[in-house]
């Protein structure tokens, strides 16, 4: 494994629900617009690579196939056609015990309705995956305590799920998914069941954990704002197809399809687009003076942009190297709205 190899790689993955999926598949391959009777195409010929340490957000409305896709990645659903490689191994060909072993060591998953066992308290819920892989009671309890402390639930270890608020329950879910120290972390609409204030708080909590843990993350959401806020890359799904898979900046700046454009239309783009996203290559142009930090959004440096008189402003990455130049006029257009 070199650093550039994808952790998860989907090759032409199909998932068709119905009594005779293979027939429906043949029909669909012949005519992509076909709608086979009594069959639902949840995942339609999806090809994706997810790099180590990357956070991919899969965004789509309900019924777009995003939850099915993530369940295919962990083989909770068997795919109809195509292949899914995890660290180069085809999970479709794994035996039951190999699969269980993979889940016990490599994967963690957080669910929309938390998926907690009602008969176990928070501690026992978090310890569940460790118990499954046969870890000793003392060590798994110790680990579970540690995880609960990490998600801020110290002191609630003996509470049962029904005694916890929704946000707290999801923290337990998060702690459980992290207990086995997975390399790959799936989150299936983890904050959708929470009310808006708690959701915001949980997103911040999530970003904190993400920064500490540095895992490969696949995050499902139907909330475009959430996707923009959290993602390294966003895959937008519709009717089982990936419409566009790109960084938030590029999705906002260059929506690939009409459908994606409809999502981005109402977005305050200045909040989304980063300096680095707008930067153009250095070729030929010389830019002088202090550089803008590439990781900041236009909104965050609005005051500076308005004050800075340069037409072209250099943009630097986190290490301070200049990576490109930004056209001030264009940035101001985005910031203030066009045709002002």
């Amino acid at each position: 494994m070199t650093r550039s190899d994808p952790v998860i790689s989907c090759r032409n993955v199909w998932k068709i629900f119905g009594p005779r999926p293979m027939d429906a598949l043949a029909q669909l391959r012949a005519d992509p617009q076909a709608r086979p009777d009594r069959h639902v195409t949840a995942v339609h010929d999806v090809t994706l690579d997810i790099m180590p340490g990357e956070m991919l957000v899969v965004m789509g409305l309900s019924g777009s196939g995003k939850s099915t896709l993530v369940r295919c990645l962990s083989r909770l659903n068997e795919i109809t056609a195509g292949e899914i490689l995890i660290e180069g191994r085809d999970i479709g060909k794994m035996s039951e015990s190999e699969l269980i072993d993979l889940r016990r060591r490599k994967m963690g998953m957080v669910f929309q309705s938390f998926g907690l066992l009602p008969n176990r308290n928070a501690l026992e819920n978090v310890a569940f995956p460790l118990e499954m892989r046969g870890q000793s009671r003392a060590s798994r309890i110790a680990r579970a305590r540690e995880m609960l402390a990490l998600v801020g639930l110290k002191g609630r270890e003996s509470y049962f799920p029904r005694e916890l608020s929704g946000g707290q329950q999801q923290r337990v879910g998060i702690a459980r998914s992290l207990a086995v120290e997975p390399d790959i972390w799936f989150l299936d609409e983890p904050f959708s069941a929470l009310d808006p204030l708690i959701r915001r708080e949980m997103q911040d909590e999530f970003l904190r954990l993400k920064a500490i843990l540095k895992k490969t993350i696949i995050f499902i959401t139907h909330d475009f704002d959430e996707a923009l806020r959290l993602a390294d890359r966003i895959a937008i799904m519709k009717d089982g197809r990936v419409e566009q898979c790109d960084t938030p900046d590029r999705i906002v700046l260059e929506p690939a399809t009409e459908y994606v454009a409809r999502f981005t239309a109402e977005i305050d783009r200045a909040r989304v687009i980063h300096a680095s996203g707008l930067a153009e290559p250095l070729t030929g142009r010389s830019a002088e003076g202090p550089a803008l930090p590439g990781g900041q959004t236009l909104r965050e440096m609005a005051r500076h942009l308005v004050a800075d008189r340069r037409d072209w402003i250099p943009v630097a990455d986190a290490q301070g190297r200049t990576t490109g130049v930004l056209e001030r006029a264009r940035a101001l257009d985005i910031l203030l709205g066009e045709h002002v």
Binding site: D101, R103, F111, F114, P129, M132, R176, S177, F186
Partner: peptide
């Protein structure tokens, strides 16, 4: 989801 969470926990 509860079943899936069990599966993801690596339960046989």
């Amino acid at each position: 989801e509860v079943v899936e969470s069990g599966k993801m926990g690596g339960a046989t």
